[in-house]
Design a protein around this nucleic acid. Structure first.
Length: 546
RNA sequence: UCCUCCGUAGUCUAGUGGUCAUGAUAUUCGGCUUUCACCCGAACGACCGGGGUUCGAAUCCCCGCGGAGGAACCA
């Protein structure tokens, strides 16, 4: 290591015997996709080294109901399979894991720093600090507080208090030398102490702030590696200062690039959905979700239905492993070739050295491709079990399902082959669960195939009569019948296929038609054809609008 | 304005002085097919810019440019 000049005490990085990482979410009521990636990397690193992963709740600044705001986050992690060794609901030797319940520790730390001269009481007023800040900016230099209202003795404090001032506690940062952070991802990063601020660590009302709390807790919880998003890199010098002032040994630091918006390098944010919707890929994902959620009668507010939040994916039927696998490759790679990892493989392969330094845009299309792969690996039983709740939520299936729906649903899912990307896609096949009389028709397809095509209705009538003679109504017999029908009438396949599909399913597209008819059964097919013919005959031909 | 980080196809990435610059995904075209999807075949597409070092630079150095983060009594 080069011989760096450090005005402050030399930095000792602790050699930890046990790897302990943490993720420290604020109870915001939702689990952000970027937060999941940070947590995932922490989790993988801990698992890889046989260490512990700790969940700590950063509720230093929360007035809301923490329980309510925390539950979705814990549920999200559990769904994804990211388990924690210590934290809410599991507790552990360092409990409590809520910062709001650890305030005495922070108060004690402030007291210690005040005593050893690494922090001071400051009686400045907000406007006064602001004025200094503006002056600095006008002079094009880094703002550094003049410490004009600093009080290091009781006498000084008494003078300021007599003026009606109240105190905050500030860090008394070094003003020369450099702070070197040996970041496990970025290498050595240097900051000049002279550019660092005398950060407030305790507010006038006596409550302690994030940086102090975070450092105290990391030390108390014996965190060995602080793996977090890069927006904290600039915060690290002040945290190192706090750490050293308190006599702690330093953890190893690793700063991850943030997850960026689709098609840009801005940080992904929950509140910018309207903007993201201008991105085609993002819109496609959103619309896909909306189609499913609408059918399930779900609320579509930004808080409950938002692709930046993990719940979105769970609610429309993504597989957790698809998300994990995708997120793993968003900012990390093994070799530029390998893409699919089981959880065990991820744990074995993961290393901080191979984390990418630059921010990565969230790509909904690629995530969907991972999802498709995961779905294709599922056997019929699992796929079916995932689909049932969607049919129930859409009111297409009873709860519990009638005993004969199992095989029926299995036939449908088998016939869909790989057309179901997310479990909610089963709702694309709602026509199998609708009573004949209320089957909706795709207006355009109905007009094209049954109204505007001359002779289509007559062909359908004849085909209906032909299949009504069939004793064995199965895929093979239906196919044979139709092929013979086509030959006998000397027509093209499409001339009968399309009217039949539209009349029996109401849709222009779907899986194999012979399978479709066989699953519906003879009676329903004939009934639906009759109903469609009736509608078609009542509808005058129209010019097609294209 | 100051400080710090980052910059390879649309997107995610491989690459550490010599490669036809890797793979994936997306897109386009063709094939298969009753539609859609799958599958098969092909194509398109990138080293932020400028200087330097070197026989040779995506790779090392310098200067720009662009993007992001920090400069809170937020986290």
């Amino acid at each position: 290591m080069p011989d760096k000049i450090r005005a402050y005490a030399p930095i000792f990085y602790k050699v930890h015997l046990m790897v302990r990482t943490r993720f420290a979410p604020s109870p915001t009521g939702y689990l952000h996709i970027g937060g999941v990636r940070t947590a995932l990397f922490n989790w993988l690193f801990a698992r890889k080294h046989g260490g512990q992963f700790i969940l700590r709740i950063d509720d230093t600044d929360q007035s809301r109901n923490v329980d309510e705001a925390l539950q979705p986050i814990l549920d999200g992690f559990r769904w994804l399979g990211i388990d924690w060794d210590e934290g809410p609901e599991v507790d552990g030797p360092h409990a409590p894991y809520f910062q709001s319940q650890r305030t005495e520790k922070y108060q004690a730390a402030v007291k210690k720093m005040l005593t050893n001269g690494t922090a001071y009481k400051d009686y400045s007023r907000t406007e006064e600090i602001q004025a200094e800040r503006e002056t600095a900016q006008a002079e094009k230099r880094t703002f550094v507080y003049s410490r004009r209202w600093m009080a290091e003795t009781d006498e000084q404090a008494a003078v300021f208090e007599a003026e009606g001032r109240t105190a905050v506690v500030r860090l008394k940062m070094p003003r020369e030398g450099t702070c070197l952070i040996p970041d496990l991802i970025r290498g050595d990063v240097e900051f000049e102490w002279a550019h660092e601020q005398d950060m407030v660590i305790q507010k006038a009302d006596g409550t302690c702030l994030y940086h102090l709390a975070s450092v105290v807790d990391d030390a108390e919880l014996e965190i060995s590696h602080v793996i977090r998003a890069e927006e904290h890199l600039s915060n690290t010098p002040r945290q190192i200062f706090i750490s050293q002032s308190l006599g702690y040994e330093l953890p190893q630091y690793a700063h991850l690039p943030y997850v960026a918006e689709p098609g840009s390098k801005n940080k992904l944010s929950k509140r910018k959905i309207p903007k993201y919707l201008k991105n085609q890929d993002f819109k496609k994902l959103y619309d896909h979700g909306e189609r499913i959620a609408t059918r399930c009668d779900r609320e579509l507010s930004e808080d409950t239905f938002n692709p930046v939040i993990v719940d979105f994916y769970r609610d429309i039927g993504f597989l957790p492993h698809a998300i994990i696998n995708y997120l793993l490759l968003l900012g990390w790679s093994l070799d530029g070739e390998t893409e699919e990892f089981t959880t065990e493989e991820m744990i074995a392969a993961f290393s901080l050295e191979r984390v990418i330094k630059s921010p990565a845009s969230f790509d909904p299309t690629k995530l969907t491709a991972f999802q498709q792969r995961e779905m294709d690996k599922l056997d019929l039983k699992k796929k079916s079990a995932l689909c049932v709740p969607y049919l129930q939520q859409a009111g297409l299936l009873e709860t519990p399902p009638a005993c004969d729906t199992g095989p029926y649903l299995n036939d449908i899912i088998t016939a869909t082959e790989n057309r179901i990307t997310v479990a909610g896609d089963i709702l694309d096949y709602d026509d199998f669960f609708t009573v004949d009389a209320s089957l909706p028709y795709d207006a355009k397809a109905f007009a094209k195939r049954l109204v505007n095509t001359e002779g289509a209705q007559q062909l359908l009538i004849e085909f209906r009569d032909t299949i009504s003679e069939l004793d064995d109504f199965n895929v093979e017999s239906i196919e044979q019948t139709m092929r013979e029908f086509v030959e006998a009438k000397d027509i093209k396949f499409g001339e009968i296929i399309h009217p039949v599909r539209v009349s029996t399913t109401g849709k222009p597209v779907g899986f194999g038609l012979f399978e479709t008819l066989a699953i519906l059964g003879k009676d329903r097919c004939i009934n639906r054809m009759n109903l469609a013919l009736e509608s078609a005959q009542n509808e005058p031909p129209q010019a097609e609008s294209e």
